[in-house]
Structures are given as structure tokens and as C-alpha cells.
Design a protein around this nucleic acid. Structure first.
Length: 325
DNA sequence: AAGATTACCTGAAGGC
DNA sequence: TGCCTTCAGGTAATCT
């Protein structure tokens, strides 16, 4: 499942191939129109076709693509339409994949949105030897380099829990203040929050610590895998009430969270079932999970049998010996 | 109002 | 062999 480390890995991959590219054509499945797109399909296609990617970044588990549209002048005159820059926002849900590859390969099953890409006009170098164009029979000089080959970006999603939308970007807004309100309501990034702020937010809540780690309004980016891994490494019982966690344990959880996420990013994320990076490759961190997916196996720290329980409505694996309330 | 529960999806796995 | 049920979980809507 794509959580923070998986989305970060995908974003880094997309950043290596997308900026400077222009979307020539957009294709949509029936399921994409019915469920995945949160922007009306006509509006979605009209915004993206002809637009080019300026920047790719991660926001929690969301992928934010800052899009640029040449000749924004026309759009500015149309009420309600997008200006020269706008957001294209992707959430991969449970099984979403965003894979960039040379066109020609057959689209996999459950491909719901696809984008034919070419090179944005602004990034094309002007022809050096213009006189060639005037010589009959001289072919256009082929553009060389990885950025020139025909490319397709495909969104595939077996369970169709992913979401995609277009949102306005107000360039005058400070910081990320231009994001849609739904995203503005999310909590801080787990890799950016300070230890003191994390402890303060924990103390203010009485829900189970596992429920909070999964709550995107508390912290943006953790999911079931990394919540379990963080709690084990911090020696915290998943059902422990957050407000009862000692300052020492809160500090330990903060450190565990940063260590696990950074280690997972370094290994390209966890491929439990469907996750693939922007080039279609699996991650390797699943081999280093200490608890997730290891129920009934011995704890790698103390040897006790790892238990499985439902906490905060989610399957939770923990060590009854190392993780006390 | 915070916390808990459920619906949305498809594929894999287990029972009979 | 094949049909049925259950489970997996991120988010949003609904309930207590």
C-alpha cells in the first residue's frame, strides 16, 4: 500500500522524467469517470491536454503536480477556468500505480487513466541549423536524449480506491496556502514535525496511539504498515491511549518514526502486494519489516510469538512482550 | 465533538 | 473443480 515512503519514492521517480513534458492526450476508463476522477471528466481532460508538468512533490500520501499551461491569457478571460498554473492532485489509495514508460508496451489490466506525453514547446531547443528546413528532402533532425522519446504515463488501480483531481493554484498565496481546503486540513508531515510538537499533539488526544498514527489529520503520510513498525520499535502497545504516553515514550516514538520512514525511503518503500515505483519496480523494505505481516512468527527482539489484533478497525501486529500499554 | 463504524472495490485464500 | 465467504486497507460519510 502506498504510504509516505512509497509515495516519496514514486515522486522522486516522476521528478526524474516528467518536468518539462507536455500532455498531448488523456484517456479515461469508465471506472475513472465514475469513481477515480473527482473533477468532471470533461474539465479534467480540458485542463490537462496541452499542459506541461512544472514540478512534482509529495504532500502526505498525495502526489502534487504543478502544471503549466502555455498561453494562460485565454484561460484568464474565461470565468471559472484555470489560470496558467494549476494543481493536478493524485492519491493512489490502496493499489494505485503511476508508471512512466516508453509508449508501445501494452497497457496492463486495470489501467484507468493514461497520458500521452511529448516535450513541452518551451523546453525544445531552437533548431540550430534552420537552413536544413529549407532543403527539400532533409528530414527533421531527430531529438536525442531521454526526454525526447514517446512516453506514456499510466495510472492503474485494481481496487479503484485512488483519486485524481484538478485544483486551482493561487500563485499569490503564501507557502502551500493554495492547496484545496481538504488537503489544508491534514496534519504535519511526520518527517518535518518537531519532537516537542509531536509530544504536545499526542498529549492532547485520548484515542489509541495507533488510531492517531493512522489519522491523516493528526500526521499526514503514515498507514498501517509503518504505524505498526513505528510502534514496535518504540516499544508501545498499539491500543495505548495517547494522553497516557510518557514523555520518554513519546520521544522514542518520534525517533522510531523518523528512522523507519527514512530507512524505508532508502530501500524504495515496501512492496507487500501491488506497490511499484514510477518505473514499475518493487521496493525492498518489506524484507526488513519487524512486525507487519509476521503474525504468529517469533519476535525478532525477544522471541515471543507476535500477536494479531484489531485496533482502530485495522489489522495490527505487535509483540505482547516488547509492547506494553 | 471526538471517537467508532461502515461503504466503497477487486483479488487471493480457505472451506466444503 | 467450483462456488461461496472472508479478508486486505485509505478515505469519507455516517453513526454514537
Amino acid at each position: 500500500m502506498p504510504e509516505l515512503p512509497e509515495v516519496e519514492t514514486i515522486v522522486r521517480g516522476l521528478r526524474a522524467c516528467l518536468p518539462g513534458r507536455r500532455i498531448r492526450q488523456v484517456g479515461l476508463s469508465r471506472a475513472a469517470r465514475a469513481r477515480i476522477l473527482r473533477t468532471p471528466a470533461r474539465e479534467f481532460v480540458r485542463a490537462l491536454e496541452g499542459a506541461s508538468v512544472a514540478d512534482v512533490r509529495r504532500y502526505g500520501k498525495h502526489i502534487l503536480l504543478r502544471m503549466a499551461r502555455a498561453g494562460g491569457r485565454k484561460a484568464d478571460t474565461q470565468p471559472g477556468s484555470l489560470s496558467s498554473h494549476f494543481w493536478w492532485i493524485v492519491h493512489l489509495g490502496m493499489t494505485g500505480q503511476l508508471i512512466c514508460e516508453p509508449s508501445g508496451r501494452e497497457a496492463p489490466l486495470h489501467t484507468h487513466v493514461w497520458f500521452e506525453l511529448d516535450v513541452a514547446p518551451a523546453s525544445q531547443p531552437p533548431p540550430r541549423r534552420a537552413q536544413n528546413r529549407d532543403v527539400p528532402g532533409t528530414p527533421e533532425p531527430a531529438r536525442t536524449g531521454g526526454n525526447a522519446c514517446p512516453t506514456v504515463l499510466r495510472y492503474t488501480d485494481i481496487r479503484q480506491f485512488g483519486r485524481m483531481e484538478i485544483a486551482a493554484l493561487r500563485e499569490e498565496a503564501p507557502g502551500d496556502g493554495s492547496l484545496p481546503p481538504r488537503l489544508e486540513r491534514l496534519g504535519p508531515d511526520p518527517l518535518a514535525i518537531s519532537e516537542a510538537e509531536f509530544a504536545r499533539r499526542l498529549r492532547a488526544r485520548k484515542a489509541s496511539v495507533k488510531a492517531l498514527l493512522l489519522d491523516q489529520r493528526f500526521l499526514r503520510g503514515l498507514g498501517n504498515i509503518y504505524a505498526d513498525e513505528c510502534l514496535f520499535r518504540a516499544g508501545l502497545h498499539p491500543a495505548a491511549s495517547a494522553r497516557r504516553i510518557s514523555p520518554r515514550r513519546a520521544a522514542s516514538l518520534w525517533r522510531a518514526m523518523r528512522a523507519v520512514l527514512q530507512e524505508a525511503i532508502a530501500h524504495g518503500g515496501s512492496s507487500v502486494s501491488d506497490y511499484r515505483d514510477a518505473r514499475g519496480r518493487p521496493g525492498a523494505f518489506q524484507q526488513r519489516h519487524l512486525v507487519y505481516g509476521r503474525a504468529d512468527q517469533p519476535c525478532l527482539r525477544c522471541g515471543a510469538r507476535l500477536r494479531r489484533a484489531v485496533v482502530a478497525g485495522r489489522g495490527t501486529t505487535f509483540c505482547p512482550c516488547c509492547q506494553r500499554r
